[in-house]
Design a protein around this nucleic acid. Structure first.
Lengths: 162, 162
DNA sequence: CGTATTTATCTGTTGCAACATATATTTTTG
DNA sequence: CAAAAATATATGTTGCAACAGATAAATACG
């Protein structure tokens, strides 16, 4: 048989040079998540790096801003978008860059309170617009209905119980 | 105002402790992609690491198996699911682990042909079932229809022109 | 009230990732 | 055919990520 497969190779399979379609829908969905993440995140990481911070570091700063008050290292680790087993050192580096301060809690001396500095807030503020514009340039071609549906499907993908 | 916001905090916003809903659907979709990627990929990476390889290294081995014949380092980099600017060293490490061989092309001496060894093929074969089972355990609770719709939306997210 | 357990953070080590830059070979161009 | 451009890979350096294990403080338990 020299004829090509009757089922056309398209979507992800075509992008990464696959020779045959996927056997299982969950395989294809998994790889689509990975590839989409990679394509969307790469440009954001570069934007952040141009301002001297990494993606996880930006995530920490966002968490601190969201709370508006000191947050423990442990709590920060809980709220991270991507889990990061090295939070003490991550916070340490943000401290060295003068973006956060660390204060040992007096009531429970195991705990360290982390707080944004003025320059940390200023950096976040400076990044807000370019990041929002980047995301819009990457996903703004889709309708809100499609985006909401995508979000809903991803939430369900993460939660087998729902 | 001490009353809580009328719009309930749910989905991703609740997972990462956000205090208010997202303003833009594309922001929420972006963060959902990141978080879903993180949750799905972490366990796969651990499974691979237990067998001595990283995610990108596994990706290279898969590409080589897909072709069934030698592939240049450049071509491998092209087909990677997540881009990786350090392909020569990545392949070098796979060579050190006896999973691939490198051969300098005689017709074009810039090119290096990379090929799976027997032990590379054997490792892939050993990983097939556990990885498929892992993916099924992570996404098997969704119907094929939902998974296909998720894939379709992710493909469109990556391709503004479509 | 002392011991065990849990909680929260810290430290040591290893290896990979990312970026820039360099080298070698082939192709293009005038 | 020589010089310039493009292509394919290699290397130097820096810093972060991941895992294991250690430490210190608070809580639970008999």
């Amino acid at each position: 048989m020299t004829k090509t497969d009757s089922k056309a190779i398209q979507g992800l399979a075509a992008e990464i040079g696959m020779k045959r379609p996927f056997r299982f829908a969950f395989e294809e969905a998994f790889l689509n998540v990975v590839r989409t993440y990679s394509m969307l995140a790469t440009r954001g990481e570069r934007l952040l790096k141009a301002h001297g911070i990494s993606g996880p570091q930006y995530n920490v700063l966002r968490i601190l801003r969201g709370h508006g008050s000191p947050v423990s290292i442990y709590q920060i680790a809980e709220e991270m978008l991507t889990e990061s087993p090295d939070m003490p050192r991550l916070v340490e580096r943000l401290g060295a860059a003068q973006l956060v301060t660390k204060t040992r809690c007096v009531k429970d001396r195991r705990v360290v309170w982390v707080e944004l500095t003025k320059s940390g807030s200023a950096l976040l503020k400076k990044l807000d617009k370019p990041l929002l514009e980047l995301h819009e340039s990457q996903l703004g071609h889709m309708s809100d209905q499609d985006l909401n549906q995508l979000s809903a499907l991803l939430v369900r993908a993460r939660h087998p119980e729902i």
